[in-house]
Nucleic acid binder design. Sequence first.
RNA 1: GACCCCUUCGUCUAUCGGUUAGGACAUCAGGUUUUCAUCCUGGAAAGAGGAGUUCGAUUCUCCUAGGGGUCGCCA
Length: 469
Amino acid sequence: MNAIITRFAPSPTGNLHIGGVRTALLNYVITQKAKKKFPKSKFLLRIEDTDKIRSNNEFKNNIIDELNWMGFHHDDEPYIQSERIKRHQEVALDLLENNKAFKCICKPAELEKKRNENMKKHTNVKRLCTKCENSHDVQKLKNGYVIRIKIPNSENITLTDLVQGGITVENQEIDNFIILRNDGTPTYMLAVVVDDFDMGVNLIIRGDDHLNNSFRQFYIYKNMHWPIPQYAHIPLIHGEDGKKLSKRHGVLNISEFKEKGYLQEAIINNLILLGWAPSNDDEIISLEEIINNFEIKNLSKSSSIFNYDKLNYFNCYYLRKDTNVKKFHDYSQTNPQLKTFYRKDKEKLKRIFNIYKTKINYYKELENISPIYFEENFVTKKNILLNKEFKELLKKCIILLENLDLWESIKIEDLIKNFINTNKIKFISFGKPLRFTLINLENGPAVSDIFFILGKKNSILRLNNYIKG
RNA sequence: GACCCCUUCGUCUAUCGGUUAGGACAUCAGGUUUUCAUCCUGGAAAGAGGAGUUCGAUUCUCCUAGGGGUCGCCA
């Protein structure tokens, strides 16, 4: 056994998606685990941008940035597939010269028509070009053709997949796929194999939507006399409707999760539990523990549905940890609204976070919560709770508050408790209108915490303004 | 339509032939609490259906049904 070389190979035709993050996570975890035994193991990143029309740099940068943000650092510089076209062409010509591939001049529209007809007739839709391979005229052409791979007709292939197990496919089910396009550029099917071989990739972990491709790509490996890598085709994540995850399922790009204030460890914890479970019952699990315990062979073969409730549960758990207070600080610098509050009074913002962290699922929720505490010309709204008796009590209470030197939640709480005791009233009958007077909300944090957030001066100002108004 | 894969509570899963089928999220009910939340305790909730193999099947085999993936000069 040797070092394990894995790769994450996204195409930059969109931003990094939660499904892609999971694939990257699994590649990363497996490689880190392997590194403990074989330090030369590597996790590579390859940008598959052979589709020039749909690929762009913005997507490429997003993928690289977000992968780094997640903490899935790759070894080596990112490989850019389009820079290796010459090499891909070389392999295509090699296959052609060795009679492992052939030129084809079939028109896409004709093949499309034939495919539809064959589907209706319930016959094979895989070998649609039947004439070109045996036509001397076509094979002698100097241009205006595509190059297709040759697949023997009567054999079958069995591949052993680390997740899916042994799978056998008849060659009849494999098409003579194109390896070099009309314009001389390589297709994905060729480029992916050439690059994986050249980079020494020996374990391919990818979505099981590629499972069928393995059987096609097998013939490039075989004809080039290259070793077949190990495969692990992981089941896809689905939306709540059981369908492949897509836009209509809501937030999906990792950038959006980041922007909302989800933490990396919550996302990782949530994703690793799709299709896998740790041997003990403890589902709160760190990346380090995942690396130590995860086994790809224990991954489920069936797809799983992405669940926001559980993600929120994990995020809520992690963002409350004291060790993650710094993350809130970092987040507040990336969120425009929180950043202005931070500049105004960073201590106040921090107090808000500490008091609200048991009530929120992700940081962005503080956007709606914070403004009331930063409002400079605060005016208490009308409310049925604010009756005459309350007003009279409040006047007395303000005097006590003004005399309180140490403005801390516990001290304030004691003061209010004493106050209600001496006045023989119930906490709730005084506390609730008091909360409303301060922040125009009936429900929320303990009133002593609200006082603490606002600070002595501002709290008393708000109360006095209410009394006057 | 063809090929390949899958099927345990609503969701994610545990179980490597014998279990009161376990856990987590969500949900419901109590309790703590200063409202909301947190937290604690408890409840309800599952082997797609049918054959077989076996003393015994959630577990092994087959069939059916349902779901998913693939079938591009996209990746």
